[in-house]
């Protein structure tokens, strides 16, 4: 094999982001197999990873993990550039913005559960706005708001609790650069793909 003229040397941070993104992508794909009562109501298990990364590694890494997950997850599910992709993307961007604000709430009072629920509301809010403006140009979409809001509270609570538990139980030694999520698959092709963003 011809040696590449461009040498990309991933830093520890790159590897960490790639591992977390891979874990989130696995959860996204696994979640797609769960039958859903209503289109749009999803547990959003991958957000557990985002919450853990946010708490432990900060907002910037959470943004990377979340957006890589949306991108690669949609590629794997054949949703890339389909309406669902833009809904996911808008929800993820809104959630990340809200998380960026929510993480500055006093830690003594507000934990991952608060972050999770607030982000879930931002998620449904952005998705409903995009759906209303683009996919279903009718106020009828807002008729489903109560269902989405309840789902945001319930799944936000569950995801937040799982994230809080993971944060409490996993060793907090960042030195090893080991992934806090045990469900991480072998860092394989996804790992390399996630490393591509040039930096």
């Amino acid at each position: 094999m011809t040696p590449s003229t461009i040498e990309l040397t991933p830093t520890a941070e790159d590897r960490r982001i790639a591992r977390h993104a891979a874990a989130a992508i696995v959860l996204t794909v696994a979640e797609a197999a769960i039958p859903l009562p209503l289109p749009g109501v999803k547990p959003g298990l991958a957000n557990i990873v985002t919450l853990v990364v946010l708490a432990r590694w900060g907002w910037r890494e959470a943004v990377w993990v979340s957006l890589l997950r949306v991108l690669a997850g949609s590629l794997l599910l054949g949703q890339f550039f389909a309406p669902g992709f833009f809904l996911s993307l808008s929800g993820a961007v809104a959630s990340l913005l809200v998380l960026g604000l929510a993480m500055h709430l006093p830690r003594r009072w507000f934990g991952p559960v608060s972050h999770s629920i607030l982000a879930a509301f931002a998620h449904i809010g952005a998705q409903l706005v995009v759906a209303r403006l683009w996919l279903v140009p009718h106020d009828g979409v807002f008729y489903l708001l109560p269902v989405f809001a309840l789902a945001a509270v319930v799944f936000g609570l569950v995801n937040g609790l799982v994230a809080a538990r993971l944060l409490a139980e996993l060793p907090s030694s960042p030195a090893a650069g080991s992934t806090p999520v045990s469900a991480t698959p072998q860092p394989g092709p996804l790992d390399r793909e996630a490393d591509h963003p040039e930096r």
Partner: peptide, 16 residues
């Protein structure tokens, strides 16, 4: 794992 603020956020979510 539920902090006081978390309970408030849950309650606020249910109110919404």
């Amino acid at each position: 794992l539920l902090l006081p603020g978390d309970m408030m956020v849950v309650a606020a979510g249910l109110v919404v």
